[in-house]
Amino acid sequence: MSTAVISTSAAQGRFFIFDEESDAGSHAFHDPERASSYIRRPQSAIRNQKSEILSSVTPALRLSVRPAPEVVSSGIAAIDTLTGGLPRGCLTEIFGPASSGRTTLLLAALAAAARRGEFCAIVDAGDALDPQSVAAAGVDLNQLLWVRCGEHSPQSSLLQGWDSPTETISSEHRLEQLLRVADLLLESGGFGLIALDLCDLPPQTARRIPLATWFRFRRAVEHTPTVLLAIERQAIAGSCSSLRINLSATGNRKREQITNCEMKPTHAHLLTELEIKAEVVRSRVERKPVCSTEITFASKTAWAG
C-alpha cells in the first residue's frame, strides 16, 4: 500500500521558480545589470506567472488519499497495542524461529475472527495444525476451513483406473499446493481471515516464492474484508506485506530458575506463561515511519487452567 505524499507549499501561498529561472536568478545576483532588470520586471507579469503555476498544481484536498485499512483484533491485547491490530485487505507476515509463538498468535487471531462470526481458512503446508490446540484456543471448528497440503492430487484420465494410493510429497510440491489453494481461496472470497502456514517449509524453499505471487495475493485481497496472514520462519514477502511482526521466545531465565530450584519441574512450570517477544519490523498501516518497538506477552497451555 502506498502512502500519498502531499506537497503543502502551494497551499501556503508560496510560488515556485523554474530551475532555469532560478539558475538565471542566481547568476543575476552576481551581475548588477541583470539583477536590476529582474527588479524592474513588472509585478503584473510575476502575478500572471504565479497564477499560471498555481493553476497547474492540484490542491491537496483534491488528491485522492487512500483510506487507512480497517484493522481487527489479533486476539492478543499486547499485539493490538503494538500494531494497532491486523489490517483487513492487506498481507500480514508473522515470522520467527521454532517455539517463538507464531502458531499461538495465529490461533489467537483465528479465535478473534470466530468471535466476530467470520469464516476463516488455514492453508497448512506442513500439515502441522493440532485440532486440540485449535479448540483450546477458542476457535469454532465449524467456522474454520483447514486445507492440509501433502498429498498427491489424483489427476488422471478416465481410463487410468481406480483411486491410486496416496503418496507423500516433497516440500516443493507442498509449496505449490499451498500457492494454488491460496489463489483459489482468495478468488472465492467471503473469508474473514485466510492464513498461510509456511512454518514447516525449509526457508530456502519458502524463499522460492516469486515476488510476483505475493503481489498477486496482495492485489487479490485488496479492497476485501479479508485478513491475509502468513506465518513463516523468515520474512519472504518483501514489500508486499503491510505489517510484519517478528516473534521470538524469551522467559528462559524464569525456567532456569525453576529448574535450578526444583529437580523435576511439572508441565505447568515448563509451559505456563511462556514469554514471547514481538517486534514490529514493518508497518504500512499507519502513515508514519515504523519505529521498531518490542513488547512481551505470555501464553499458557490449555490444560494449565
Binding site: G75, I76, A108, R115, D127, S133, A137
Partner: peptide, 20 residues
C-alpha cells in the same frame, strides 16, 4: 465468547504443532 474477550486477550493459549 465475546464476554470473555478481555480474559482471552491477556494470555494466549500455547499451540502445539504436530509432526505427521
Amino acid at each position: 465468547q465475546k464476554c470473555s474477550d478481555a480474559q482471552e486477550n491477556t494470555c494466549a493459549v500455547a499451540a502445539l504443532r504436530m509432526f505427521r
